[in-house]
């Protein structure tokens, strides 16, 4: 959270803090609104998340069925299913594969108009991304989790603290993912187009965030290295 406030202060150094918050809030809201207009795309996206949820869930459950003690990596079937379905829901919420807006704008030169605004571009993009986050949290998270709960046994958190902790960690993950994507997109300043780095990111982040399989299934030395040395596991 500290990250947000620190950047809010830089919006308009001369003006009172409240005005900065208002500006930031307006930018967040506009990001939210922008995604709210694509209702059909939201539906289509959820459908895709759900299909992939089924595919991944069946694979992991089959692995669990064959594993010794049916607990691969220390997870039981219900935990694995929860992992898959919450993961599918979080995918767009955290926005690992968020839209490549910035690199497109750099390629076409539109980025110049962002630099003209009296708001630092990183802050403006972060605000828009948080708007997207809010929209996705309300729309894209629900579908996969409900479908997952209908077709599979999921675990429910046993301690109440889990829920607020999950919420905070999701928000932090969204900000972290935004930071990473911003860096990747910014390579377009040098390369003209960030497609290469973006593909690399899409791919690396998918596996390394644990979207395909829980990282604990990896050899221990590798899993620990990933946890400590890279931002990936923190995102999903």
């Amino acid at each position: 959270m500290g990250g947000i406030y620190a950047s809010v202060l830089t919006i308009s150094p001369g003006r009172p803090f409240r005005a900065s918050v208002t500006t930031f809030g307006a930018l967040v809201w506009s990001g939210f609104r922008r995604y709210a207009t694509y209702r059909q795309a939201t539906l289509a996206g959820s459908f895709t998340n759900i299909v992939f949820g089924f595919l991944r869930c069946y694979v992991l459950l089959a692995v669990a069925a064959g594993a010794t003690g049916s607990r691969p990596g220390g997870y039981d079937g219900a935990q694995l299913a929860t992992f898959v379905w919450v993961g599918q829901g979080l995918l767009t919420v955290v926005g690992i594969w968020g839209p490549p807006d910035l690199s497109d704008r750099i390629r076409t030169g539109d980025v110049a108009s962002d630099l003209l605004r009296p708001v630092p571009p990183v802050t403006a993009y972060l605000a828009a991304d948080l708007g997207r986050f809010g929209h996705a949290l309300l729309t894209r998270m629900v579908g996969p989790v409900i479908v997952g709960a209908i077709f599979f046994t999921l675990t429910t958190p046993t301690r109440w603290q889990t829920i607020p902790l999950f919420a905070i960690s999701t928000l932090l993950a969204a900000i972290g993912s935004f930071g990473c994507r911003f860096l990747i997109n910014a390579t377009a300043y040098w390369l003209h187009d960030a497609r290469g780095p973006l593909v690399l990111w899409t791919l690396g982040s998918g596996v390394l965030c644990g979207l395909y399989f829980p990282l604990r299934l990896l050899p221990e030395w590798l899993a620990v290295t990933l946890w400590v040395a890279t931002p990936f596991p923190g995102l999903l």
């Binding site: 069925a65 990596g73 399989f213 299934l217």
Partner: peptide, 11 residues
């Protein structure tokens, strides 16, 4: 390969 680290047979 990773998935088969946990089990000898899948399906």
């Amino acid at each position: 390969f990773v998935l088969y680290r946990a089990t000898a047979r899948v399906g």
